[in-house]
């Protein structure tokens, strides 16, 4: 169907890089999401304020601007601050790190809301019962709260992942050699941009469809102890 002119391997390399940057961003997003939801549900007003600021700001700014700000802005900012204190330093973020930081930071805000909803949907009696059994705070979080919350969080987190993996295409703009950028190289070399961009879009579509299937399997697995309604 497609004459790849020997560029198929290049696209596959790019696909692996897309998965790598996607998975590491997702990991960061999950950590930030847990931290953010914990802050939002805490009784500490400063923590609540910071978490609200985080989700409000991130949802109001385009991903591209945040990515450019992290990749180009942060090194310059640190250098300027260092220069003010009389240090002459040069900082270069590599694209993989900048991409992971930016994408993870953005989707951390979305997972914060997912986790917050999940934690809130657990009956307070569960935690009171754990307390009555003599469980400490961290033990009751690990054994009671988290396992039940994960079941509620799974559909939302699946959506976050599917939006996130598509957002990684943006990292090509800061020259990370992922699927999108490898595709550009192949498209320019062969003068067949439509063929290659279309093929790459099918690879992304494949990732989305596989993710959808895995998600529905995972939801079945997570709900196996719950009676069907």
């Amino acid at each position: 169907m497609f004459d790849l002119k020997g560029y198929g391997g290049l696209l596959l390399d790019g696909l692996w890089m897309t998965l790598a940057v996607g998975l590491s961003s997702m990991l960061l997003a999950l950590l930030l999401g847990l931290l953010g939801s914990w802050a939002k549900l805490s009784r500490n007003p400063i923590a609540v304020w910071f978490a609200d600021l985080y989700t409000t700001v991130v949802r109001g700014i385009p991903e591209l601007i945040l990515l450019l700000l992290v990749y180009f802005g942060i090194p310059t900012l640190i250098q300027d601050i260092a220069a003010r204190f009389g240090h002459d330093i040069t900082i270069n973020l590599n694209p993989f790190m900048a991409g992971t930081l930016a994408i993870g930071f953005i989707y951390g805000a979305f997972s914060t809301e997912v986790f917050r909803g999940a934690f809130m949907s657990i009956a307070p009696g569960q935690l009171e019962a754990a307390k009555a059994m003599g469980m400490g705070r961290s033990l009751s979080f690990r054994r009671i709260l988290l396992p039940q919350a994960m079941r509620f969080a799974l559909p939302g987190l699946g959506n976050v992942w599917m939006v996130l993996i598509k957002a990684t295409a943006l990292v090509s703009i800061i020259q990370l050699d992922e699927l999108m950028r490898k595709t550009k190289i192949a498209a320019n070399a062969t003068h067949e941009p439509f063929t290659f961009y279309f093929l790459a879009s099918l690879l992304y579509l494949g990732l989305t469809i596989i993710s959808m299937l895995v998600q529905s399997r995972a939801e079945c697995w997570a709900n196996r102890g719950v009676a069907e309604r």
């Binding site: 295409a169 943006l170 941009p193 961009y197 469809i209």
Partner: peptide
């Protein structure tokens, strides 16, 4: 197709791909 692929690729497909 349009929900399952990145917008950036849709943009390139139309802008650069039309050249083909």
């Amino acid at each position: 197709y349009f929900r399952g692929t990145p917008l950036l690729i849709q943009l390139f497909l139309i802008y650069y791909g039309s050249g083909q």
